[in-house]
Every structure is written in C-alpha cells, then in structure tokens.
Amino acid sequence: MEKIDIVLVAAVAENGVIGRAGDMPWHLGSDFRRFRAITKGKPQIMGRKTFESIGKPLPGRTNIVVSRDPGLVIEGCLTATSLEDALALARKDAVEKGVDEICIQGGGEIYRQALALADRLRITHVETTLAGDTVFPEIDPALWEVGEEERLPAGEKDDYPTCYRVYERCR
C-alpha cells in the first residue's frame, strides 16, 4: 500500500497561540487561500470545537470530526471517538480518492495527539504575539527540519505578516 502522510496544518502566533474563545485571533485572507489549496480533495481531521468554530463542513474535502460523544452526528461529516479511529477513516478515504495526505486541522488537543504521528507540518507562523487559550505544541528542532519557507507581508486582507514553513520529520 502506498504511504499516506499525516500533515498538521496550522497558523501559529510567535507565542504558540492558535485560538482564543473558540475562534482564531486574526484574519489572514492569504493564508485561507493557501489552506484551501493545500487541503482540497484530502481527508480532514478536526476536533469538535474546531468544527463548531468553522460552523459547517469544508467543501471539497472529507470532514472527520473527533468527539468523545459516540452519539454525535453531524450532517456532511464523518465522526470518530478517537484520533486513532479518525485516522482509520481518513486512510480509507485517502486510498479511495487516490490522495497521499491526511490533513489535521486542529484544535490544540488534536494537534498535541497527532504531532508524534505526523510526517509533515505546514505551519503559517503569524508574526505577532497575542493572548489566547489554545496553543500549538512546541516544534522540536531535533525532530523537525524546515524544508520550505515563504515570507509574506500583511496583504490587504491580512491582520499580520506571516512566514509559511513546511517542516519535514528528521529521518
């Protein structure tokens, strides 16, 4: 069977913050476009709170929501009671669609669980420090190396400048 990579996709402030009060603490139009391009057609795994902050399934992707509630039903989404079960659903979907990545899109607890399993990180570093209640786990430079980097000034629809990096797991 062909390898299917697990990829964490996130926007992270300089102090690790990714969320505040159930929402992102910034607006980054250029990053939304990149996110859409990276994730289109691929299975997505997110926690229930992240799904609720989005409010609807993302189009053109299989949306898999992780919740401890085994009775949770969300129209247009698959649900799983653990990251392990969500990954099994995502792998099946990726094989059926012929794609080679599963995208993990938050929140903090899902990222924390998935980091040890990840093959790649696609991180938009938001060049600011903000208060928040959800953080991304620390990226250990002994385990991850930057393979690609792109700096972007704040555009018309961006609150802050960013630096997009693709991290590959050190082998």
Score class of each variant (00 low, 15 high):
Pro43Thr: 07
Lys3His: 15
Glu149Gly: 12
Phe35Arg: 03
Gly132Met: 08
Ala13Gln: 02
Lys40Gln: 14
Ile18Ser: 01
Ile110Cys: 04
Arg20Thr: 04
Gly41Glu: 07
Val17Met: 06
Thr124Tyr: 13
Leu87Pro: 01
Gly76Asp: 13
Val166Trp: 03
Pro43Phe: 09
Gly155Arg: 11
Asp69Met: 11
Tyr167Thr: 01
Asp158Glu: 04
Met24Phe: 08
Val99Asp: 10
Ala154Ile: 01
Ile45Met: 05
Tyr164Asn: 10
Ile102Gly: 07
Thr39Gln: 06
Met1Trp: 04
Glu52Asn: 13
Ala11Tyr: 10
Glu145Gly: 09
Glu75Gln: 14
Arg165Leu: 05
Gly22Trp: 06
Cys163Gly: 05
Phe32Asp: 08
Glu101Phe: 01
Glu96Val: 10
Ala90Gln: 08
His125Val: 05
Pro141Tyr: 13
Asp133Arg: 03
Ala86Thr: 02
Val7Ile: 08
Ala21Pro: 00
Lys42Pro: 00
Glu2Cys: 08
Ser82Gln: 12
Val146Ala: 14
Tyr164Asp: 03
Asp23Glu: 13
Lys3Met: 14
Trp26Pro: 00
Lys40Leu: 15
Pro57Cys: 13
Val99Lys: 04
Val12Cys: 10
Glu168Gln: 13
Leu58Trp: 02
Val146His: 01
Gly47Arg: 10
Arg91Thr: 13
Asp158Ile: 00
Cys103Met: 15
Gly71Gln: 12
Pro161Tyr: 07
Ser67Trp: 06
Arg122Asn: 05
Phe35Asp: 06
Ala80Gly: 04
Glu75Leu: 13
Ala21His: 07
Thr79His: 09
Gly107Gln: 09
Val166Thr: 15
Ile6Ala: 03
Tyr111Phe: 15
Lys3Cys: 08
Glu156Gln: 15
Arg165Ile: 01
Ala37Tyr: 05
Gly71Cys: 07
Gly16Leu: 03
Tyr160Lys: 03
Ile74His: 01
Gly76Ala: 12
Gly60Asp: 11
Glu127Cys: 07
Ala131His: 11
Arg36Asp: 11
Gly60Lys: 05
Pro70Ile: 04
Val166Glu: 14
Gly47Asp: 12
Gly155Lys: 09
Ile4Phe: 03
Val99Ile: 10
Ile54Gln: 01
Phe32Trp: 14
Thr128Pro: 01
Glu52Met: 12
Val99His: 05
Lys3Asp: 13
Gly132Thr: 05
Leu143Ser: 12
His125Asn: 12
Ala86Pro: 02
Asp93Ser: 15
Val95Tyr: 11
Pro43Ile: 08
Val7Gly: 00
Leu152Asp: 11
Phe35Leu: 09
Ile4Gln: 03
Ala90Thr: 09
Val9Asn: 10
Arg61His: 03
Gly29Arg: 11
Asp133Gln: 08
Ile38Gln: 02
Asp5Ser: 12
Ile139Glu: 11
Met46Thr: 02
Val65Cys: 08
Arg20Ala: 14
Leu143Asp: 14
Ile54Cys: 01
Leu152Ile: 01
Arg61Leu: 11
Lys157Ala: 15
Val126Cys: 03
Asp158Pro: 01
Thr129Ala: 08
Asp5Trp: 06
Thr134Phe: 09
Thr81Gln: 15
Gly71Met: 11
Lys49Thr: 13
Gly19Tyr: 08
Ala114Met: 01
Lys157Gly: 10
Asp140Ile: 06
Arg120Cys: 00
Gly29Pro: 09
Cys77Tyr: 10
Pro153Ile: 00
Ala21Glu: 14
